[in-house]
Simulated scan of single mutants.
Amino acid sequence: MTGHDRQACQGILVTGGSGFVGKSLLKRLDEEPVWTPRALVRQQPESRLPGVDYRLFTELSDIDRATGYFEGVDTVIHLASRVHVMQETAADPLAEFRRVNVEGTLGLARAAVEAGVRRFVFVSSVKVNGETTDGRPPFDADEAPAPLDPYGISKHEAEEALRHLAAQTSLEVVIVRPVLVYGPGVKANFRSMMSWLNKGVPLPFGAIHNKRSLVSVDNLVDLLVACINHPAAANQTFLASDGEDLSTTELLRRLGTALGKPAKLLPVPAALIKGGAKMVGLGSLSQRLCGSLQVDISKTRELLGWTPPLGVDQALRATAVNFLKEQH
């Protein structure tokens, strides 16, 4: 499809286009000729997709309709945010999260309204629901939020601000709360797990009986694309997952299979792991490894008629293949 032909397609503006999810989303939009994708990025990417219009920005809250970012745009998919910081340097972390995630989001949405944008898809976080489902049912999309950390609080406040804006204007707001996102190119703890497994390191996670929801980046992207035009998505909140919950033990075993390196797991009781981690200041990490965090995506399935296109094992294989390729 030529650039001229693209002009007649639906304009989609993606913020955070250079991030993990953003790159996958832009690739999907670029591959399908019905979209004209535009990406807001803080710096030009090393590799550019041919059909994507990349635009630089500094502060989301400073964007207005006069900048031209919204020209021809029907839908905004807002991924850019301040995420969890391992080594926090801000004197007031919550104020910094609010500046970016609340004020920045609202400034962008107001400019979108002024420019006549129809729909605003906001990628929030399961942390709006809370930190754990230990001793309770899976989180539901419409239950009362209970965020605990500055990131979750800022995302909740951004959701509330967007709902208020939608009630006052013609803007349709769609909120998507993903759980942990993984896939080809994933970093942080998930990549560390693959590295340990690939090296054959024995891990003390052979007796963890928790349940955690995950979502592959391809499944999340597919859901975001479904939210662009689905009439039932307007002014709704959805949870995103693969639809199959795993214990840490199950995840490591299946990830080891995907890597071709059977996991060497020692049956250390979860209570011992939690106690040891707390002593060395890693209590939050042990909660992610040993605690449960499940979401119920039945609303997402029923209201949108959406089913995760990739099964967990298929998504883990794609993640492992990419990881192994990067090792050479």
Rank of each mutant, 00 (worst) to 15 (best):
F205Q: 02
F205Y: 13
F205G: 04
G206A: 10
G206Q: 12
G206E: 10
A207C: 09
I208A: 09
I208H: 00
H209V: 10
H209G: 09
H209Y: 13
H209M: 07
N210F: 08
N210V: 11
K211Y: 09
R212S: 05
R212Q: 11
S213Q: 04
S213H: 04
L214C: 04
L214T: 02
S216I: 08
D218I: 07
N219Q: 07
N219D: 01
L220Y: 05
V221L: 12
D222A: 15
D222M: 01
D222T: 10
L223T: 05
L223K: 02
L223A: 07
L224R: 08
L224Q: 05
A226P: 00
C227A: 06
I228Y: 01
I228S: 01
I228C: 13
I228F: 03
I228H: 01
N229S: 15
N229G: 15
N229M: 08
N229L: 11
H230C: 04
H230L: 04
P231E: 11
P231R: 11
P231I: 09
A232K: 14
A232L: 11
A232G: 02
A232W: 06
A233V: 10
A234C: 15
A234Y: 06
A234D: 09
A234K: 15
N235I: 04
N235E: 07
N235R: 11
N235S: 08
N235H: 12
Q236Y: 06
Q236N: 10
Q236C: 13
T237G: 07
F238Y: 14
F238H: 03
L239N: 01
L239I: 00
A240W: 09
A240C: 11
A240G: 02
S241T: 10
S241Q: 07
S241I: 03
S241H: 05
D242Y: 03
D242N: 14
G243R: 11
G243Q: 11
G243T: 12
G243N: 12
G243E: 10
E244M: 13
E244L: 14
E244G: 05
D245R: 11
L246F: 14
S247I: 08
S247C: 09
T248R: 04
T249P: 09
E250M: 08
L251C: 06
L252A: 03
L252W: 04
L252I: 06
R253A: 03
R253P: 02
R254A: 08
G256N: 02
T257W: 10
A258D: 00
A258G: 06
A258M: 02
A258S: 11
A258Y: 00
L259T: 04
L259M: 06
L259N: 03
G260K: 00
G260R: 04
K261P: 00
K261L: 00
K261V: 14
K261R: 15
P262S: 07
P262D: 12
P262E: 12
P262T: 09
P262F: 08
A263L: 03
A263Y: 00
A263C: 03
K264S: 08
K264Q: 13
L266G: 07
L266F: 13
P267N: 09
P267S: 12
P267E: 10
V268E: 00
V268W: 02
P269K: 03
P269W: 06
A270H: 01
A270F: 05
A271F: 15
A271M: 14
L272F: 12
L272W: 15
I273T: 08
K274R: 15
G275K: 14
G275R: 14
G275Y: 14
G276P: 06
A277M: 14
A277E: 09
A277G: 10
A277Y: 12
